[in-house]
Nucleic acid binder design. Sequence first.
DNA 1: AACGAGATTGAAACATGTTCTAATCGTGGC
DNA 2: GCCACGATTAGAACATGTTTCAATCTCGTT
Lengths: 220, 220
Amino acid sequence: MGARTRSEAAAGGAGLPELPGARLAANQLRRMRRVVDAAVRLAEKGGFEGVRLRDVAEHSGVALGTLYKYFHSKEDILLFALNEELERVEQALAERPASGRTPLARVTDFFRRATEAFLGNPQLGRAVLRAMAGGDAETAVRIAGAQLRVARLVVAALHGETPDLAAAREAELGDERERRIALTLQYVWFAALVGWSVGIHPESAVIHHVRTAAELILKR
Amino acid sequence: MGARTRSEAAAGGAGLPELPGARLAANQLRRMRRVVDAAVRLAEKGGFEGVRLRDVAEHSGVALGTLYKYFHSKEDILLFALNEELERVEQALAERPASGRTPLARVTDFFRRATEAFLGNPQLGRAVLRAMAGGDAETAVRIAGAQLRVARLVVAALHGETPDLAAAREAELGDERERRIALTLQYVWFAALVGWSVGIHPESAVIHHVRTAAELILKR
DNA sequence: AACGAGATTGAAACATGTTCTAATCGTGGC
DNA sequence: GCCACGATTAGAACATGTTTCAATCTCGTT
């Protein structure tokens, strides 16, 4: 394979002369990036099994052994990608928060958008879900990180656009209750996504189940 | 699989002389049983990866190829075992229904017992969970079956020991609501089990999360 | 009792995740 | 400018899920 192309290493960056000590690290970051990008592209095409690590290595121009220096396993790569995607979702929600006048409406809006992010690339979504459920102790940190991110987003959606005011009004008990609701809804969302992933219900059921759970908890 | 077994329905009892036509089917049933038992024994010892199909074949005395005539995949075997285990749980609950005077108490009792069944053999539980989340289209039927079984059990726990009376009192709307609650709690349970399985929270958190969700929905 | 269709077997083959190794490269320190 | 050391590479090697195949066996039928 053409991975021998040493020329790429000499890529002089965007124009800035890189610090001498940072040179290697920058190359390593670029390699990681290419690995993750290649894995995601393959997952979009062929799901979890479509991500053949030999292909990832070839497409990203790194050796198989190097790939394993950066990630513990195939799952690890996909979970890294998941966390990056969640960062993007956080960004999008910071710019345009979940809309709606009630917590129920906002939380539904949030999950609708988050589900679209997942189901926009069904194969990629399935691959990531499988990586989450098949993870081992090595990947637990990434999974926990993803869970925490989502939990924060759900809490934010429950709160609404006026966090300070609401936070001031609601006592600690209120916060605790919101965290519990957020965790519960997140779990329902995850399970519904897995159900869709393995084929026991259609895509539309995912958001439907989450909304049902949200109604059970929030409507009165 | 080779459904050539025209006479499988006539499976002879424990000590009874088997009918001539049932002989092959009985052998096949025995093989399946040995396969499943061997897989479960290996899963109890070494979890999902502990179930090496070559070992399953050897321990159960069937050839690798035969094993694949009965089951589509490793996941398929474990999901078959799950459904058998759920039958046993159904049995236990029929004999001693979930106790408690309120739906919340009964449903909590149910999930406590069901969780114990899972966590009694942590390795086996992890293996089955991984099989559920890693399933493909072939195994969707078994997963859907398991889901349905559990859903029924949760509904029964919500209802309590007097199904006829309650069923008569509650309109269809009530039934629908109960089904929704059951599905939601089941999803929370599943997600919490996966969370325990991949190591992001301890065993005790599973029942805790389910109880929290049940309180959010049922307490007022 | 012989026959034949389908089931089973034993073993090899294949695919792919993961690990290992010797050779080479790139970089900071002299 | 050169060296030593860690990173990288190409590729082999290993483990295990899955498939395939020819030979054999089983059992109901004739």
